[in-house]
Simulated scan of single mutants.
Amino acid sequence: MTEQKYDLHCHSNFSDGALSPTDVVLRAIEHGVTTLALTDHDTVTGLFEAQQVASQHELNLVPGIELSCIWNKKTFHILGLNIDPKNTELLAGTQQLQKIRMERAKKIASKLEKNKIPGAFDAVQEAAGTGMITRPHFANYLINKGHVSTMQEAFDRYLGQGKSAFVNTQWVELEHAIQWIKSAGGVAVLAHPMRYKLTASWMRRFLSAFKEMGGLGIEVITARSNPDEIRRTVHFARQYELYGSVGSDFHTPKNQWVELGRLAPLPTNIKPVWELFNH
């Protein structure tokens, strides 16, 4: 029997990933992944192509999404795993997020123009195609135009919080995001919990609210997790009786540190989130 390898968080070029859904699925297979969730930001559009390819190979594709939301004026990313991508409530929600992203893109482009960097909006819109416009699209534009040499520099100089082209965005409320996921029959999972840099007391407040609203899981293992972060996340998972998830958050083959399927195993004292999926 083939050893099961899960990766429940990755992106295609329908949001801020570099590869098409087809290439993400084929790369996952190449790296021994047996169950993959494609979780593009605020859109399900890439799932149909991914499912088609997965069904031609022995890969179990879990339909997913990563929703941007706000709780107590802080931004969080919530994964919806094992969703029905045709659910009307979820689709209405993604349209709302599409509008928010479009408004943000226009504001970022306008700020870049004030920095004497014109033409960004048309370029990122073309690059995003039918997918969501994200900040990495702007970063790529800045690289292509020679204003910066790396993605990190683009964020450090222009796009990161407090920088000249940063736009504070009012995403949807956490409660709504979880409701859309539940409505689509999915499992709500907190993505990369250690990236929010919350104190332990803030994390406890958040997880209490998350659980109360119907959140069920927490990403215990990511491609960047160090042993201390895993230990802390395991503690929160056990304290709040949350199911554990594993996900690389893969975006591009250019990032050698983040690869599909290259993940530490989920600790055995944590209930795996895939137990909640009804295949």
Rank of each mutant, 00 (worst) to 15 (best):
T94A: 06
I133M: 04
E3C: 09
I230F: 07
P265F: 07
A223P: 01
N140T: 11
V24H: 00
A188N: 11
N144M: 15
N168E: 15
T222D: 01
P272K: 09
E241G: 10
E30L: 09
F206I: 07
W171N: 00
P267V: 08
A50F: 02
D23F: 11
V167Q: 04
A165S: 10
P265A: 13
F250K: 04
Y6M: 05
E66F: 00
F250E: 03
A184V: 07
F155M: 06
P272Y: 11
L61W: 05
Y141P: 03
L242C: 06
F138N: 02
P118T: 13
W202S: 15
A92T: 14
W180Q: 00
W202T: 15
F14T: 10
L266S: 06
S12D: 09
S225P: 00
T268D: 15
G129E: 09
F121P: 00
T199S: 15
K182S: 06
N140W: 08
C69P: 03
W171S: 03
L38P: 07
K114G: 06
L67E: 00
V148M: 09
S55E: 13
D84M: 11
R232P: 00
V167F: 02
P272C: 11
I117V: 14
A200W: 12
T75V: 15
T252E: 07
V33L: 08
L36G: 00
P193H: 09
Y196H: 12
M102K: 10
A209V: 13
Q52E: 14
S149C: 08
Y158G: 02
K74I: 10
W202C: 14
I83G: 01
E66P: 01
A223V: 07
V24G: 01
P265D: 12
D7V: 06
I133C: 03
V187D: 03
T88G: 04
V187H: 02
E126V: 12
E49K: 08
I83R: 00
D23G: 14
P85S: 12
P272Q: 13
S245G: 10
E219C: 10
H251W: 10
H235Y: 11
E241A: 15
T268L: 14
Q256K: 15
F138Y: 05
I230V: 09
T268C: 13
E175F: 02
A200E: 15
N115R: 14
V234C: 09
Y141K: 04
L59E: 01
P85I: 12
W274R: 02
I270M: 04
T150S: 15
E66T: 08
I117K: 05
A209G: 08
Q98E: 11
P118S: 15
S225T: 08
V189P: 00
I70S: 06
M102I: 09
L47Q: 02
I29A: 01
H11R: 11
I218H: 01
K73T: 14
